[in-house]
């Protein structure tokens, strides 16, 4: 497909016939999704199901794929990088940097970065701007990166396993932070396999299995139909 073209005029994310392979391994297979703005959507699946690959395509880190992907009508490109706030599943800042260096970088790069929100989040997470990243624990790095990403007033948030490394208490704080700083007019796509912790904040759920979408529905309709929590439904769908 040709990139850089305007595919649709729709707001949010539109994916049609998306496939991605790594050699002989299919990471995503004929994925069709329409994700409107104003919602928190959970991308739920076990490890290796294709969650991170999908988020990397949306964030512009994987440029070679089959199918059509548009964010606010644009294929992943420079335009979409301006409106997408992406949190990867691993630390992505150089060790020598201090929190204030990373904050300055985001402030310079993103016009939608809110310095006051960042300061408030750092204070809440008990992180000092003078802290060097190499001296921080894994949990502190996660909180710091989440603070950076949520300090942007972005149109699309892509969070890859934001609660993966935190203890139960830290997960609650992280989820509260996401909810408190989420712009209701934007779209938040959160990938995780820790369903029980996140299901209460979701508007829609997507189950992804072996690169295929097996379910995409509003959370409440799944709960009403199945008479079970999302976590229980997930365990049934993905049981070995």
């Amino acid at each position: 497909m040709k990139r850089g073209m305007t595919m649709t005029n729709g707001e949010g994310i539109a994916i049609r016939g998306l496939s991605k392979n790594y050699g002989k391994t299919m990471a995503l297979e004929m994925v069709d999704l329409t994700l409107p703005k104003g919602k928190i959507i959970g991308l739920l699946g076990p490890n290796g199901s294709g969650k991170t690959t999908l988020l990397k395509i949306l964030s512009g880190l994987l440029m070679n794929y089959d199918g059509r992907v548009t964010i606010n009508g644009h294929s992943p490109d420079l335009h979409t990088k301006r409106i997408v706030s992406y949190l990867p599943d691993s630390p992505y800042f150089a060790d020598w940097m201090k929190i204030k260096d990373a904050t300055r970088l985001f402030k310079d790069m993103y016009p939608d970065f809110r310095t006051d929100v960042m300061a408030a989040l750092l204070s809440r997470f008990e992180l000092s701007p003078k802290m060097r990243i190499k001296t921080m624990s894994k949990g502190m790095k996660e909180k710091f990166q989440l603070a950076l990403v949520m300090s942007r007033k972005a149109e699309i948030y892509l969070l890859d396993e934001p609660i993966g490394g935190g203890d139960p208490a830290a997960r609650d704080v992280i989820l509260q932070t996401i909810l408190a700083n989420f712009n209701p007019e934007s779209l938040l796509l959160i990938s995780t396999h820790l369903i029980q912790d996140v299901e209460k904040i979701l508007d829609e759920v997507i189950f992804i299995k072996n690169g295929r979408i097996v379910l995409h529905e509003p959370r409440n309709s799944v709960i009403e139909r199945e008479g079970k929590s999302i976590d229980e439904v997930f365990r049934e769908v993905f049981k070995c």
């Binding site: 512009g60 990088k81 992406y86 990867p88 630390p91 992505y92 790069m109 993103y110």
Partner: peptide, 17 residues
């Protein structure tokens, strides 16, 4: 580091051409 390491996820999601 800019392409092989985790830092690539930062450099290539920044809004620069």
């Amino acid at each position: 580091k800019s392409i092989f390491g985790p830092q690539a996820q930062l450099d290539f999601t920044l809004p620069i051409s």
